[in-house]
Amino acid sequence: MATATTLPYRRVYVWELPVRVFHWVNAISIVLLAVTGFLIGWPQTIWMSDEPYQQYWFGWVRFIHFAAGYIFFFNLLFRVYWSFVGNEYARWSSYIPHRKEQFLNAWETLKVDILQTKEKGKISVGHNYLAALTYLGLFFVMLFQVVTGFGLYAGMSDAWLPWLFAWIVPLMGGDAWVRQWHHIAMWAFVVFTVIHVYLSFYHDVVEGRGTISAIVGGWKFERDDEFDK
């Protein structure tokens, strides 16, 4: 090992408890939704018995999908609320790039991550703006899933919440087309998850600032000389 330099670091409380809770509820419900959704689309042959009264597995798959759908929706609503009251890293303004340096940062990150150039300037404490852009994009996909999902659900439910979204069905030309788009949107989550989990680990490894542990404990590290620049 080369000579160790001692650099001053500070601990920064980035992800507040509500954000962390949101994140994991969100991640778990999305995984559940994608798995159950995929099964709804392509039910596997599980020949447990011959008689329908002896089993209900597909019913449970659907139940989990709908239950997870509700949790996912309210969790998302809560996160939208928190983006107005949470800390600077959780704010709406750090998800919707609207200033020049935010776009520059996204560009810079793109270069660092994809072209693998050497990092210039400071490492973001919260998420970088490239990530912010993907979260924003994902947010719209989430909304889309909520609208189409509940829109479909309205056809089989008399509850009021799904009926708020029933308008999507005639708009898209019938349930079949809504399902088609609801199904294809699932793949957006799959693709996102692959990239997102990878990049989380990647940043953690490359930057060594606690990216991963932060989403569990909330704390990240920041070099003192970069702080508040």
Binding site: M1, A2, T3, A4, T5, T6, L7, P8, Y9, R10, R11, V12, Y13, E16, N87, E88, V206, E207, G208, W219, F221, E222, D224, F227, D228
Partner: peptide, 23 residues
């Protein structure tokens, strides 16, 4: 990175807010 050993500084009076306090 590996060569940088970490030294978490105590907050300096007068400088920015304490790192572990929520803004």
């Amino acid at each position: 990175n590996m060569d940088e050993s970490v030294n978490i500084n105590p907050p300096k009076p007068g400088s920015a807010m304490p790192a572990d306090s929520v803004d």
